[in-house]
């Protein structure tokens, strides 16, 4: 499982690196325009592509850390068993949403991989590939979470009380 930790760390550093690159590239644009009276057309495109990657990779990392904005008031009103059932149904629904992103993302990749962006000539498909990629790993994390719901159930059944 150590390799997973390394992979997560690598993804974190890569995401941080992309944001740093964005900050540098956009800043170059400001400086270039004012100091050298020049603007690079690739600048806007490449920083925007990095941004979409930061958004979807960041969403994956946020998923791992359970940081996505949600509403837990209704669930909190339920008794313990109800909470578990609701969480289970909620996870199934989320899996549905992720499957939409995976299937739609793959289709969209194939549609757009033939379409190069005007300034950088990077095919849009390469940029769009980040959606099915993140969604796939979110799905794996979701499966792990769901298994844990049942494992906790079992522990409690055996008399484990750590609340």
């Amino acid at each position: 499982m150590k390799i997973l930790l390394y992979a997560e760390r690598a993804l974190e550093l890569f995401t941080a690196f992309l944001l740093a690159c964005m900050a540098i590239i956009v800043f170059i644009n400001v400086v270039a325009r004012y100091v050298f009276d020049k603007a690079f057309p690739w600048n806007e495109e490449i920083s925007l592509f990095m941004f979409t990657w930061v958004v979807f990779l960041g969403a994956l990392l946020a998923f791992k850390r359970h940081r996505h904005l949600g509403l837990d008031i209704v669930i909190n009103l339920l008794p313990n068993l109800g909470k578990k059932v609701a969480a289970f149904i909620g996870n199934i629904l989320m899996a549905g949403a992720l499957l939409i992103l995976i299937q739609g993302g793959i289709k969209f990749y194939f549609q757009t991989v033939v379409w190069p962006a005007p300034a950088t000539q990077i095919p849009y498909g390469y940029v769009n590939a980040v959606v099915p990629f993140s969604a796939f790993f979110m799905l794996l994390l979701l499966i792990k979470d769901t298994v844990e719901i049942f494992q906790k159930e079992k522990n409690e059944g055996e008399g484990g009380t750590q609340c």
Binding site: A39, P41, P118
Partner: peptide, 16 residues
């Protein structure tokens, strides 16, 4: 963001 426009207007002397 379209190379024909960028090239054309630069050829006319503008800062694009």
């Amino acid at each position: 963001t379209n190379s024909i426009f960028i090239d054309g207007m630069q050829a006319l002397g503008f800062n694009t």
